[in-house]
């Protein structure tokens, strides 16, 4: 019989899995719906080479969508978590880099209506850091298939 503490941790892992999976699926929808707007957001980061902007705008939302579904459905869950953690790490680096150099931008994470404010970008950084911590926790707990 499993100790009670393990049940709580299992439940916590389940909730984190749902939050991460649903967040990635939800975050992909508006980008898939309006790739032109997402491409403009990517341009606004002022980091990506011009030739890569449209390719990223087309592909990144689908990587998010597939990983979100994969995590929730249990199809290659560790692979989905690894990809999600890599994506979150990249988001943190991109947002952090722009914050450090004082470049105003819209992250375009969950909508295209975000205000270009440093405070909200710091919030994004903290939110992504929490999601990454959750992703690492899940990765360590998820058994290799």
């Amino acid at each position: 019989m499993k100790p009670m503490r393990n049940n709580y941790i299992d439940f916590l892992a389940f909730i984190i899995k749902l939050i991460l999976g649903i967040s990635f699926i939800y975050a992909s929808f508006h980008k898939i719906e309006d790739p032109q707007a997402f491409a403009r957001i990517l341009y606004g980061y002022d980091i990506f080479p011009d030739a890569s902007i449209n390719i990223l705008a087309i592909t990144v939302p689908f990587v998010e969508l597939v990983c979100g579904f994969s995590l929730i459905s249990g199809w290659f869950p560790r692979s989905a978590l690894l990809t999600i953690n890599v994506l979150l790490s990249l988001f943190i680096v991109l947002i952090g880099f722009n914050l450090i150099r004082g470049h105003q931008f819209d992250c375009g994470c969950f909508s295209f209506d975000s205000q270009n404010q440093t405070a909200s970008n710091i919030f994004l950084l903290i939110r992504d850091a929490f999601m990454l911590a959750g992703g690492i926790f899940l990765y360590k707990r998820t058994k290799a298939s």
């Binding site: 087309i58 592909t59 990587v63 597939v66 290659f76 560790r78 692979s79 989905a80 690894l82 990809t83």
Partner: peptide
């Protein structure tokens, strides 16, 4: 864990193919 990397390749490949077809 080569299975994890193989899984990442499968997921990313599936996402890329779907993305370009959808676009």
């Amino acid at each position: 864990e080569p299975g994890v990397i193989k899984g990442v390749i499968v997921l990313v490949f599936f996402a890329l193919v779907t993305a370009f077809i959808f676009n």
